[in-house]
Simulated assay, not measured.
Amino acid sequence: MAKLNFPDDPAASAPRQMHIYGADGKIVNTVTFGTDGKIASPSVMGKATAKQAFDFKKLLEDIRGHSNPIKVGLSTAGFGVAGAVLLLAVVSNLGNPVLFSDRREEWKAQLEGLKGAAWDVWLSYFSDVAPAWRGHAVEIFQQYLRFKLIGMFDQLAAIAKEMSGTMNNQYKEVLTYDFSALALAATAAPVFRALLKFSAHPVGRVALLSQSVIFLGAAANMVKQFADTFNKYQSELNDLELKLTDLTGIFYLMGNPAVGPRELHMDPNVTDISLWTPLEEDKK
C-alpha cells in the first residue's frame, strides 16, 4: 500500500496539496489549500459598479466650481482668511470612497477563499478519511486538522472579515462626507452669488455677513465631524493592527517573519501506515 502523503508546511505561501488514499492504496481525493501570498482580486463587476456609482473627479470639479462665489462672498464680508482656511480644510478632507469599496471587495474575496479552502479540507476528512480508517493515526490527524490547520484558517478568516467590515464602514463615511461637502457648496454658492449683487447696499451687506457666518459655522462643523471620524477609525485600525501582530505569532517563530515560519509538521506516527487500519479489514 502506498504511503500517505501530507503537505510539509501548510503555512507556506505557495498552494499545497493533500492526497487522501483509500484502503486499496489509490488516491481517492486531492485537496488544494493555501494561497499564492496575494489577496484575491475582487470581481470586475463589483469594481465597475462602484466606479459607475461615484465619479470622484466630477465631484471635485463641482465643489471647486461652487467655491468661487463662496470665496468672493466671504472675502467681501470680511472673512477672507478664515473662509479660505475652512474651505481648504473641507476640500482637503475629501476622499475617493471607491478606494475603500475596492479593498472591501478584496477582503471579501480573501475571506471566501479561506473559508472555502478550510471546508474543502475539513469535509474531505470526514467524507474520505473518517469513514474508511480507524486507529491512533486517525486521531492524531484529526487533532492536527482541528487545532492547527483549521484553527489557522479560522484566525485568518476572522481578520479578513473584520477588515472587510472596516473598509465598508470607511467607504460609507467617506461617501457621506463627500456628498455633504458637495451639498454645502452647492446650496451656499447661489446664495452668495445673489447677495454679492447687493453687497454695496447696507441691507445687502448685512445679509451677506449673516450668510457668511452661517456658512463658516457649517464648514467648521464638517471639519470637526471629519476629525471625530478620523480618530474613530484610527482607533479601529490600531486594534486590527494589534490583532494582525498577534496573528503573526501563529505562523512565525517569536511572531517575527524574519526568524522563520513555525514548524507545522505532523506527528511522524501519522505517516506510519501500520497505524492506519482500514475499516473493511476491521470488520473481517
Score class of each variant (00 low, 15 high):
W119E: 14
P257G: 08
G37C: 06
E280K: 09
N269C: 10
A200F: 02
V85Y: 04
T271L: 13
A109K: 07
I250C: 07
M266N: 02
P7Y: 02
P261S: 12
E139G: 06
G73V: 04
E139Y: 01
Y252D: 07
G37A: 04
N169L: 12
L99E: 14
T176G: 14
R103F: 06
Q142G: 04
L264T: 14
L60E: 14
G65R: 06
K51M: 10
A23F: 03
A84N: 13
Q225P: 00
V191K: 15
R16V: 15
F141S: 03
Y144Q: 08
P202Y: 01
K51Y: 10
V138D: 12
S164A: 15
V206N: 13
F79Y: 14
F79H: 10
V85K: 14
P257V: 11
W122N: 11
D154V: 01
F192N: 03
D120Q: 13
V85F: 05
I63S: 02
V191D: 07
R146W: 03
D24A: 10
G22I: 01
V90K: 01
P10N: 04
V270W: 03
S13L: 09
G25I: 01
L195G: 05
A207Y: 02
Q52G: 05
P278V: 06
E173A: 15
S75I: 00
K108S: 06
K284A: 07
D228K: 12
V191R: 15
V270L: 07
G135H: 04
R205Y: 10
A50G: 08
A14S: 11
P7E: 03
N5F: 07
S75H: 04
A188F: 04
D120R: 13
T229H: 08
W107A: 12
Q234E: 14
T166H: 06
L111M: 08
A137D: 07
K197P: 00
D246E: 15
Q234K: 14
S235Y: 08
G116N: 05
V85S: 14
N5P: 00
N68E: 15
R103I: 02
Q234S: 13
I20Q: 03
R193L: 12
A117I: 05
L88C: 03
F147L: 10
W133G: 01
S212Q: 07
P7Q: 04
L94V: 04
G204S: 08
F251C: 02
G22T: 01
N221I: 00
V191G: 00
W119G: 06
L247Y: 05
D24L: 07
V121R: 03
F147R: 12
H19A: 11
G78T: 02
A12P: 01
K224E: 13
A130V: 09
A130D: 15
M45C: 01
M222W: 00
L196R: 09
P131I: 04
S43N: 03
E162S: 14
M1N: 05
A186L: 02
V31R: 06
R64N: 15
